[in-house]
Amino acid sequence: MAVTVIEPGLGATGTRRPRPPGHWQAARRALLREPRRVVGAAIVVIFVVLAVVGPFLYPRHLAANANSIYAPPSLVHPLGTDFEGTDVLSLMVTGARYVLVSGAVAGAIAVVLGALVGLLAGYLAGAVDWSLSRITDFALTIPQYPLLVVLAAVVRFTSPVLIGVLLGVTSWPGLARAVRSQAFSLRERPYIEASRSLGLSTRHVIVREMLPNIAPYVAMNLLVSMIGAIYAETGLFFLGILPTSNVNNWGAMLNQAVFSAGAIGSPQAISYLLSPLVAILLLTLGIVFVLDAVDEFFNPRLRG
């Protein structure tokens, strides 16, 4: 006897056919849910635009003007000038690319390596896990800053990509460990067990079944490690650990403002000192504001 009970999609209000929104729509919705997310996204977008088009707006070598050193903000120099009389705004705009590129490269490398190693170790377990975990442990013991100090003596860090790569390859192990433990718990979930027993490939299980489940976490980590890389990079330049000559970025500006020219003691130069600081803070703030929108975007349950 066949007893088939069709469960209709009938709510009280009649036929409801809920459709999950597409990716663009979901992203838009996640962003628009709260005003601060919009503010954060706007900040991030402005900085990205600056980084992309900024260097094209100004000549390759910014003009120095010995007659207007430490000029206060004016119509000609909205953010004043630096110790050489170069316009601070132009320095800010052209320096954005270095900061953003190094941050993005570092974040991307750390997240891709960390998630990949963590997922493989956690899902495959056994010998693979053992070897990957030992590699992770080894990578964890590499001291990031001393390594960069030593390298700075040999390598010239004029390329933001290079420093991004270095920051990235030294900062993935933390994420790898976290992802590994998540993958460990995921592989015991009934739906992962079901995928395995249906004969779906390891690649499918890792990429299609497990990755989306840790995607919110990975995406958050991408943004957080970008912030970390930006702080690390500007910090290294600020402290003078990386040579500030021939590079133009916010960290180098801070270094020169504080150490080279003693701007910290001259009140006219306040805008010169504050500009890179405020830019870094704004960028961080923007990324932090966007964080929970990213979480919502990757989590179908929050998407509703």
Binding site: E7, P8, L10, G11, A12, T13
Partner: peptide, 19 residues
């Protein structure tokens, strides 16, 4: 045992309870 009969449909949730 065949006297048991399934109840068709499904229970409403908070949003679909008839007002």
């Amino acid at each position: 045992i065949d006297r048991a009969q399934p109840l068709p449909g499904r229970p409403p949730d908070l949003l679909s309870i008839p007002r």
